[in-house]
Design a binder for these strands. Sequence first.
RNA 1: GACCCCGUAGCUCAGCAGGAUAGAGCGGUCGCCUCCUAAGCGACAGGUCACAGGUUCGAAUCCUGUCGGGGUCGCCA
Length: 581
Amino acid sequence: MNLFADIRTLVTDCLTAMAAEGQLPARLDFANVAVEPPRDAAHGDMATNAAMVLAKPAGVKPRDIANALAPRLAADPRVAEATVAGPGFINLRLAPAVWQGVVATALEFGTDYGRAMAGAGRRVNVEYVSANPTGPLHVGHTRGAVFGDALARLLAFAGWDVTKEYYINDGGAQVEVLARSAYLRYREANGEAVEIPAGLYPGDYLVEVGKALAAEFGDSLMDQPEESWLPDVRDFAIERMMAMIRDDLAALGVTMDVFFSERSLYGTGQIEATLAALEEKDLVYVGELEPPKGKLPEDWEPRPQTLFRSTAYGDDTDRPVRKADGSWTYFAPDIAYHRDKIERGFDLLIDVWGADHGGYVKRMKAAVAALSDNRVELDVKLCQLVKLFKAGEPYKMSKRAGTFVTLRDVVDEVGADVTRFVMLTRKNDAPLDFDFAKALEQSRDNPVWYVQYANARTHSVFRAAEEKGAGVAEESLKGADLTLLGHPAELALLRKIAEWPRLVETAAQHHEPHRIAFYLYDLASEFHALWNRGQDEPGLRIVQPEDPAASRARLAMALAVRVVISAGLGILGVTPASEMK
RNA sequence: GACCCCGUAGCUCAGCAGGAUAGAGCGGUCGCCUCCUAAGCGACAGGUCACAGGUUCGAAUCCUGUCGGGGUCGCCA
């Protein structure tokens, strides 16, 4: 399905034949042989570096290899022309039939066109969002949610068996703060005037939790000591918060396969067992840390503590797993959690975190490497900050939380589809400016709109054909005579469509869903460009009432565009539009 | 002080596994928009890829160092 892979196979087959005939040494390693689109389209459709990368190991001049290889490539019916250029590139021009065949492939496979097997059914766990259950998700979480979800969908499309997972940080001190905050709202619901002191969560979202507590417990918790009500209130509030978070995620189109509670690790011995396993490898010990150089924390005093020897796996310093009071640090249960993931048999772990957790990456990787004996890879994707704007002005409104803009605020303002697409118009590790006004703008510089518009046109063109008496059933287009797609502008579009399978593979390999968004914009541009040319050159229009065969071929092409845009938007989790409103 | 991310056109950013003359949108300049397929179209200009070394046939891309911006740095999660 991936034309570039097909042609690369042709290249290596020819090289193998050359070796068999003594033109090249046997046993050459072809790993570095690449077949790629040339940077400059004028050079041809594809280029291979084979002659240059093999020159040294073969002990043959690059041009000599190229001159021998090129005619062999040209002998293949798919190759129209193979020329040697520059230091030893071989530029290939493919027969139009190859590009035309891409349309047939796209129609045959539908939105499965481009689906890859690179994952080969291996199991990957993508952990994302994982916000504390202490309040509504904010904009930063939104980016992580969209990124993680799109990455999960991308990997699934690329042949991985994906589990989407949320780690609930319900084991630390924050959920006790949550409990105290909710308890105050409970007292409020029971008619008491309360003031939320600094250090507790002031957001209005807890008011309804307080009322719910009052409905559940009546006044039985009033004037009781904290020990007696805290566990119940805490559990109640966490459940409420998680229900809210699930709703918020659902509004964004994000659903998880697994919610994993940190608290569920406590009291089961799993944390202890994990540390014991590490201790057996001499990776846990009691020692004293050097104070950090430069800025010395004011209250620093040296003391012995239980440490994980993460330096054995590339970290800068060993990391504590117990606090001064003997309780676990955040790290300890998190190690146990990752061990659980390893034991569930995943081949690859991906964590999506905010950039402010960057300092945590090395120790977690060290832990996963140690626990899996380097068998399981952990890739941590950091998402940078989102800055909000409205028509260029900084935007800090919050309807619900009082102090920060929530996920729900964003989705209410522009919708889930727009939110998702815009969040993916930047690489995850680049800061993102999100402008509410621009996101809804109907113009070329709004990629969401531009891509949706292209997709809408692939629908409207069928309606237009109908009106002109040139209507066809979409299903019948598989029989269209695609050799009629020969105009350079059409071939340019077909080449773009042909890139799709390759793009899916590289985006999945790099764990970078934003590449899908950029590709879709490019594809849309190519389609719009062809469409616009039809304004001036009626002969290029898709619907040709006087020429049913040409109409059919071009409608098939439009359908192929739709197939790819739909598949791409599907990976991003965006609903394709069939018309613009 | 250390570690991580970033530094590409006036602005916002892409750049695929190291490939040939580094791309897009905006902004700028110039044209078109009586025909037609929905909210415009097209062309041009604009770059020491932060800087200096190194590896390589070849570096924006890999390595080292410097500078600049951001993030983080035991008992927060």
